[in-house]
Structure formats: structure tokens, C-alpha cells
């Protein structure tokens, strides 16, 4: 491997990691509250409210229906307004975060549904407010499941960010596109593949370990 190739791949890996983790962070920033709203406004839950629940679910479903590659292109004007450019790593983080947020919202809702209702009822009986129940009961009780959802989201984002590479997002996806689709370089293609696999395995491994550490259910 030439030094140039090495640095090309190193830079690509770095960019993919930055895109994955920062959009993972932002997608949770958006998706976590959305998921909590979806859960709390469900029938018979603390803030049961059919219209809020339906409206939130409607927008979540719309954004989940848009194929990611279309979303990136569609969002270009918005991305440009927000970060000043529509190409490169920084620009890709915008659609990646928006694209993953509804996915995260649904994952969070499912994590919260796993908590036995009796635990919420017990907290209510002790005079906990809704905010206290969310912060002190729902979040810690769902933590192991939330960590798993985090790894799942990050892995999905590795894939999304690679897709984004085709439309100027940078990272390993971009290298794969340039050296594979435009002119086939078997060595670089294989390296890109191996690196992507390595990243995914690494995220899953660390996620599983972290989830186990915070899980006291058995």
C-alpha cells in the first residue's frame, strides 16, 4: 500500500466515523424527545392525547418513508442555509441527523414500551411528577435498551453515510464510489469494504459491552 493510499483510507475512515457519531448524537437529540412524546401521549399513558400522538406519528412516518438518498438531495437548500455548503462531511451530517431522527424516535418509543406499566404506576403512587417519571424512572429503566438502540442507529448511519458518499458526503462511501464506480480499483474497494465491516463490528462490540454493563435486570 502506498503512503498516499494509506492516508486516503485513513482520512475516509475518520470522516465516516465523524459523520456517523456526530449525526448519531444529533439524531438522538431530535429523536429522543420525539420518542418520549410518542410514548407518553399513547392511550392510557401519562399524557394520553390522541391528536398529539397522531400528528407526531404522522411526521415521523413521513420522514421514515423518504429513501435516504432522496432526502439528501431534497434537503440541499436547507443544508446549505444551515451550514453554508451542501458538499462534504459537515453538510452530510444535516440530512443524516434528520434522516435518522424518526428512526430513533420509534426505537425510543419501543424501548419505553418494554418497561412494565406497574413501575410507572408505583412512581405515580409515590407522588412523582411526569417530568420526574421521565427522568428518574423511564430513562434509567430503559437505559440498556436505549444503548442497544444507539448501536443499531450508529450502524444504520454507517450505511447511510456511505450512501451519502455518492452525492458528495465524503468518507469511505465517497472513496468507494470514486475508486469503484468511476474506475475500478480492486485493492481500494476491498479495503473500503473491510474498513466498513470493521467499523460496524466495533460499534456492535462496544454497544453490547456497554449495554451489559448498565443492565441490572438479571
Amino acid at each position: 500500500m502506498s503512503e498516499a493510499t494509506f492516508w486516503l483510507l485513513a482520512k475516509g475512515t475518520w470522516e465516516t466515523l465523524v459523520m456517523t457519531f456526530s449525526s448519531g448524537f444529533f439524531s438522538f437529540l431530535l429523536g429522543l424527545p420525539l420518542g418520549i412524546i410518542l410514548f407518553l401521549t399513547r392511550e392510557r399513558q401519562l399524557l394520553a392525547n390522541k391528536s398529539v400522538n397522531r400528528t407526531t406519528a404522522f411526521f415521523v412516518n413521513i420522514f421514515r418513508s423518504i429513501p435516504f438518498i432522496i432526502l439528501i438531495v431534497w434537503m440541499i437548500p436547507f443544508t446549505r442555509a444551515l451550514v453554508g455548503t451542501s458538499i462534504g462531511m459537515k453538510a452530510a451530517i444535516v440530512p443524516l441527523s434528520i434522516g435518522a431522527a424518526p428512526f430513533v424516535a420509534r426505537l425510543v418509543e419501543n424501548c419505553l414500551l418494554e418497561i412494565p406499566y406497574g413501575i410507572i404506576e408505583a412512581a405515580r403512587s409515590m407522588g412523582a411528577s411526569t417530568v420526574q417519571i421521565v427522568r428518574r424512572v423511564l430513562m434509567p429503566e430503559a437505559l440498556p435498551a436505549l444503548v442497544n438502540s444507539g448501536s443499531l442507529t450508529l450502524i444504520t448511519l454507517v450505511g447511510y453515510s456511505a450512501m451519502g458518499g455518492a452525492v458528495g458526503a465524503g468518507g469511505l462511501g465517497h472513496i468507494g464510489y470514486q475508486y469503484g464506480y468511476v474506475g475500478y480499483d480492486a485493492f481500494i474497494m476491498n479495503m473500503v469494504l473491510l474498513l466498513l465491516i470493521g467499523i460496524v463490528f466495533g460499534i456492535q462490540f462496544l454497544g453490547d459491552r456497554l449495554s451489559k454493563r448498565v443492565d441490572h435486570r438479571k
Binding site: 412494565p116 406497574g118 413501575i119 404506576e121 408505583a122 424512572v137 434509567p140 429503566e141 437505559l143 448498565v214 441490572h216 435486570r217
Partner: peptide, 8 residues
């Protein structure tokens, strides 16, 4: 079913 917090 006791309803204790499993995380505490």
C-alpha cells in the same frame, strides 16, 4: 409484582 426499579 413489587414494581421495584431494576436500575436501582
Amino acid at each position: 409484582h413489587f414494581n421495584l426499579l431494576s436500575s436501582q
